[in-house]
Computed example of a mutant assay.
Amino acid sequence: MPSLTLKVDVDTLRGTLEGVPRLVELFRQHRTDATFLFSLGPDHTGWAIRRVFQRGFLGKVKRTSVVEHYGVRTLLYGVLLPGPDIGRRAGEVMRSVHAAGFETGIHCWDHVLWQDRVAVADREWTAREWGKAVARYAEIFGEAATVHGAAGWQMNDHALRLADDDGFTCCSDARGTHPFQPVVAGATLRCPQWPTTLPTLDELIGVDGVTPDNVADRLLELTRVAPPTGHVFTLHAELEGMKFLPILDRLLTGWRDQGYRLGALRAAVAERAFDTLPRHALRYGAVPGRSGTLLVQGVAVD
């Protein structure tokens, strides 16, 4: 039975407080595990306005109704309103997810700051931001994190090595087609990458006639034939956890009908021995429907 891994990126305070509990309830109804990756520090969503000059950013904002999904208050954090500390304000919600039996991990410390700077950041800056997230996770959950999924699929070599040095069991930092051993500067890291293989809802809606009403059909068509290594689908607490919850409900039913075994990253990782994974380099590249460049699975390394 092919696997379809559910990875939840939680970007904002609102997404944590409102979207996460709704997703937990829906996953319980469908009797499925999922991986929740939390933003643990300040919510500076309003800083994202600096991306206005990125090619494709305004088009994406228009297509996916950012104000409607994130709310005006969230979009003012860091601009006209101070950015609230998500970990301090919503730590209890995060712990409740873990207590309910779901896998939890790190998304980032400061989502916008990491997404906008890490690709060109030096080791000192990267280690500082990484360290704050690792420390806050341990403070909230009382144990070390073992799973990481990069904010905006943005990483650098320093961050990839930090995950390896800290003993993470799995990362989902890139976009790609199948799980792999990452190769950085010629060295094979021990922490495997389970890349996102499917487009996200916000990448599909508004393109080629796709609407909220038919986006589930489009995704289910993409998963009709299962690849041998399964799929990883990234959803967002601010989207599927709120207005798009009915779409996710339909997708979960549809994927089960297609014969997929739904679950968290930990289940997919447990099925594959590390030394059986192919080795791949990493690079930055474009992804249809998303502005800027992202970390993507590169060429196979012999």
Rank of each mutant, 00 (worst) to 15 (best):
G71M: 05
G71Y: 01
R73L: 10
T74R: 00
L76W: 05
L80I: 06
P82S: 00
D85R: 01
D85I: 09
G87T: 06
R89Q: 15
M94K: 11
R95I: 06
R95N: 09
H98W: 15
A100N: 04
F102M: 10
E103G: 08
G105M: 03
G105Y: 10
V112R: 05
V112M: 10
Q115W: 15
D116N: 14
V118S: 03
V118M: 10
A121C: 07
D122Y: 06
W125Y: 13
A127D: 10
E129P: 12
W130A: 11
A133D: 04
A135I: 03
R136K: 06
A138F: 09
E139Q: 07
I140F: 00
F141K: 08
F141C: 07
G142K: 03
A145C: 03
T146N: 13
G149F: 11
Q154L: 08
H158W: 15
R161Y: 10
R161I: 12
A163C: 15
A174S: 12
H178W: 12
H178T: 11
P179R: 09
P179N: 06
A185I: 11
A187W: 12
L189W: 11
C191T: 15
C191A: 08
Q193G: 07
Q193E: 15
T196F: 05
L198W: 02
V207H: 01
